[in-house]
Amino acid sequence: MWTILTRPGQSSPHELISFGVAIGKSKSPSTTKIGNANGPRITTEEEVNKQILQHEKSGAGILCQVKTRHGAQASVLTLTKDVVGVVAVLGKVEDDNLSRLFSEYLGVETMLAIVCKTYEGVKALEMYDMEGCINKSVGLHGLGATIGKPLDGRFLVICLESLRPYAGKYVVDDSQRKLDILHPRLPNGECPAGFIGFAVNMINIDNSNLFCVTPSGYGLRETLFYNLFSRLQVYKTRAEMIQALPCISDGALSLDGGMVKSCGVFSLGNREDINVRFPRPERSVGLDAHIEIERQMEDVQSKKEKLLEELKEEKKMLEMAKYNFNKKKSDFLKFLTLSSSSSYAAQVQTAPYAPR
């Protein structure tokens, strides 16, 4: 049986099929948490793989075990050659707190989703007999049985070619090909206080997955992560996030744990520590200093743009003042010309005046 899953806010059949496919039997929510909630922070891809391996009878766990045992050979298997990877290891996040927030927002099931390039790859993972029952001897079920880890319960598979990709522009000269999404605006036209950015642009993606991952030439940011996060906004505090509700359409997070799942849907209560998180990107020596310099340059550029905007407004006001002055002067001279004080008018006309 096939169960179509949706993200909050989707309703049409076309949108329903574009998100992902859940395969297999239903699973109790109590078994979806991986690892110890009080365990160490996950910061490297190796640690993320260890957490995935703890869920050894999941689809992601079985794939991870095959990769660990067989390395490069796993990518040439008919079963796995179309698989890009597991969501949790396809993106990296600079900040541990943001990584926790993103994984909590998506949930363990989505973090462990297997990502395929095409629908042919989805079909290769699970096959059925004439009666429509799962054939446990082939596909990922058969692979799990051969390594002594039979697949247990449902697992998500996301098909990239079936997703509706981001259709807008990209940030110019950005090595990560971030999406050029307009910042939210309050009814008064101002950007809400505390707005940091969009979650989809806070994911770092390996260069190999930035371009042409799908047959249509799209990368992971505009397909996978855009469909997972859409225009999810990130704010500094919960209070600032609440103040920005009028311009939040696809959900929001705050660094202190606030969460709006979608327009009008709030996630309340204590934060859930999900230990399947995005790893932090590896850094070379001196990269931190380089990032800090880039940040300072961005601040200077932002201040420059603000000053130029203010200068532009001041120039408009000056031009308007000159126009009004010259108009009044012209009216005054006409009045003097028509009056009996023609000699006085001549004196005024010859008086020095600053050029326009």
Results as ranks from 00 to 15, higher is better:
residue 28 S to G: 13
residue 124 A to E: 12
residue 129 D to C: 09
residue 44 T to N: 06
residue 65 Q to G: 00
residue 22 A to N: 09
residue 34 I to M: 01
residue 32 T to S: 12
residue 124 A to M: 10
residue 138 V to C: 10
residue 121 G to D: 00
residue 125 L to Q: 06
residue 44 T to L: 08
residue 146 T to Q: 13
residue 35 G to W: 03
residue 76 V to K: 15
residue 113 A to K: 02
residue 130 M to T: 13
residue 18 S to F: 07
residue 72 A to C: 03
residue 111 M to I: 01
residue 104 E to A: 09
residue 90 L to N: 06
residue 64 C to K: 05
residue 74 A to F: 05
residue 131 E to Q: 09
residue 33 K to L: 14
residue 138 V to A: 11
residue 104 E to D: 12
residue 17 I to S: 09
residue 150 P to G: 08
residue 115 V to H: 01
residue 96 D to F: 10
residue 16 L to E: 12
residue 130 M to D: 14
residue 88 A to T: 01
residue 47 E to T: 11
residue 79 L to I: 07
residue 107 G to T: 05
residue 151 L to T: 07
residue 94 E to F: 08
residue 64 C to Q: 14
residue 84 V to D: 06
residue 107 G to K: 04
residue 77 L to Y: 08
residue 139 G to S: 07
residue 31 T to E: 14
residue 66 V to S: 01
residue 20 G to I: 00
residue 96 D to P: 15
residue 101 L to V: 11
residue 128 Y to S: 02
residue 59 G to N: 05
residue 32 T to P: 01
residue 100 R to K: 07
residue 126 E to H: 05
residue 71 G to D: 15
residue 58 S to H: 02
residue 61 G to N: 02
residue 38 N to T: 13
residue 134 I to A: 09
residue 96 D to I: 14
residue 145 A to C: 09
residue 80 T to K: 01
residue 80 T to W: 10
residue 108 V to I: 11
residue 138 V to P: 00
residue 22 A to M: 13
residue 22 A to I: 13
residue 140 L to Q: 09
residue 116 C to M: 13
residue 105 Y to L: 06
residue 148 G to Q: 08
residue 53 L to P: 04
residue 104 E to Y: 10
residue 24 G to E: 02
residue 111 M to H: 01
residue 136 K to F: 11
residue 65 Q to K: 15
residue 103 S to H: 03
residue 147 I to V: 05
residue 129 D to R: 11
residue 51 Q to D: 05
residue 66 V to F: 07
residue 120 E to T: 15
residue 136 K to D: 10
residue 90 L to Y: 07
residue 102 F to D: 01
residue 54 Q to W: 00
residue 54 Q to Y: 02
residue 115 V to N: 01
residue 113 A to C: 09
residue 91 G to T: 02
residue 110 T to P: 07
residue 77 L to H: 06
residue 67 K to N: 02
residue 137 S to A: 15
residue 64 C to I: 08
residue 105 Y to D: 01
residue 25 K to L: 13
residue 149 K to N: 08
residue 47 E to S: 12
residue 63 L to P: 03
residue 24 G to W: 04
residue 127 M to W: 00
residue 119 Y to K: 12
residue 44 T to Y: 06
residue 18 S to P: 08
residue 106 L to N: 04
residue 50 K to L: 11
residue 110 T to V: 15
residue 121 G to L: 00
residue 41 R to Y: 06
residue 78 T to H: 07
residue 61 G to S: 09
residue 107 G to N: 08
residue 70 H to I: 06
residue 119 Y to M: 10
residue 73 Q to M: 11
residue 49 N to M: 14
residue 78 T to N: 11
residue 26 S to L: 15
residue 141 H to M: 15
residue 28 S to M: 08
residue 89 V to L: 04
residue 45 E to A: 12
residue 119 Y to T: 13
residue 56 E to N: 14
residue 112 L to Y: 03
residue 76 V to C: 09
residue 143 L to Y: 02
